[in-house]
Design a protein around this nucleic acid. Sequence first.
DNA 1: ATAATAGTGTCTTTTAGACAGTATATT
DNA 2: AATATACTGTCTAAAAGACACTATTAT
Lengths: 256, 256
Amino acid sequence: MTMENGSNYTASKYRTPDGAPADIVIFTITSEPQPTATKSLPKRELQVLLIKRKVWPYEGMWALPGGFSRETESMYETARRELQEETGVDGVHMEYFNVYSGPGRDPRGWIISHAFFALVHEKYLAARAAADDAAEVALFPVSEALTRLELAFDHRRILSDALERVKQSMLVTPIAGEFLPDEFTLGELYQVIRTVVPDFEEANFIRKMKSTQSRSGVLEEIRDVNGEPKKSNRYSQRAAQLYRFTGNLPKLSLYS
Amino acid sequence: MTMENGSNYTASKYRTPDGAPADIVIFTITSEPQPTATKSLPKRELQVLLIKRKVWPYEGMWALPGGFSRETESMYETARRELQEETGVDGVHMEYFNVYSGPGRDPRGWIISHAFFALVHEKYLAARAAADDAAEVALFPVSEALTRLELAFDHRRILSDALERVKQSMLVTPIAGEFLPDEFTLGELYQVIRTVVPDFEEANFIRKMKSTQSRSGVLEEIRDVNGEPKKSNRYSQRAAQLYRFTGNLPKLSLYS
DNA sequence: ATAATAGTGTCTTTTAGACAGTATATT
DNA sequence: AATATACTGTCTAAAAGACACTATTAT
């Protein structure tokens, strides 16, 4: 302990926490080709990565990946490390969103848990799925994890909170891009948004995004080396314009 | 410790945190009547409440109010309790916004700090100002606290983060109401918003809020018992319509 | 009359929103 | 020819935005 000082500080006489873990809610969107007559958009589903616990408490139950923080690292670093160690995922979008500290939430003692969510493109999880024992690490549809699965600790609550947070951010930040390739069509974008926020309905989505001064600069059309619009027909007969996020963010407001 | 179990759990062999405090960034907006010829809107300024530390470390320096969490309470309860104990403030808007856990941030050891912000109407701080010793608890303009004051720990960073968060929320949630009476004029509302977000400029603010279907239901006009529009001339010769927040929140979106 | 805030009139441009229709290329 | 996605035409209504103008009333 760093106690080499001349004061009468006596924190040690108080009860201190038994641990401060980071838990990570890892979301991905899986996409499955549809068995249709011609090219079509894939079926997409929001999934969460869970780990089967191997030790007490809640042994054998599904839980969020995570682990205890060390004195030499920040909580964010803990989360990054655990993400890498437990799932092999690295360098993805990750945000801290809440602390879980209710008394009695962990039978091991006074454990204050710090919850992150990560948004991972399915391609980063492909390698992992092959390597890991599927019985110990698995993806579940979020709706199923919330309703049909009994999760360890208060992880159901954490997952539920994370989902709310991601839904919110989905419409207000460009995080949809985390589930998309660098270049995507507006049809794909719309589909990804709807996968996370099902009640987002915009009849004229494509038209609106194309007008409104390129939607205030959030997106931009991709052009090839000759300055010609770059298009893709991966999901459709008629080729669709490709877009990318610019990084620009208009300030949304209740008042403007 | 809650260790009455039959497992070989051995958290105690690992280093555990030396404390998990909650720190609270308490914002208020002061208003001072202007010495003008006729009635006018007051001068408003965003302020933060700080406490002068009486013990090591950082003895004598200004710091955010806060204190250590106990095993029997959640972090949120800790924050509420400290808010009440240290400043006498209760029942105000308070939100958790981040954790500060960088190694070495506290000379007392491994201290993981949980930061909240509170938004307090100045009327709640009036009583306190009289009771407390001004040398130990004081309000500072936020800009001054960030530039001219040297704060204890990493509290400058925490304050800075809190300010960013409140600026964001100001335009996207109805928290402006926390700094206003229940019934307010659009002039007051505009002034409060600008006090927190100086670069929010809306030439036609009042007009816009009155049109656009009552701004999507965020605000509503106040009517008196006879159904007549209720007005106030507290800040102007010509009486202005009074409004209140409805609690309705339109969903903002980059895409709609 | 002046000051300080609270509005309104008027006009142009942009956006929203609905809905039918056309475009493209694979099967 | 049917299919699945990607658009475009056309219209109407609503909102944004600029800016000059009027309204109110304590001093």
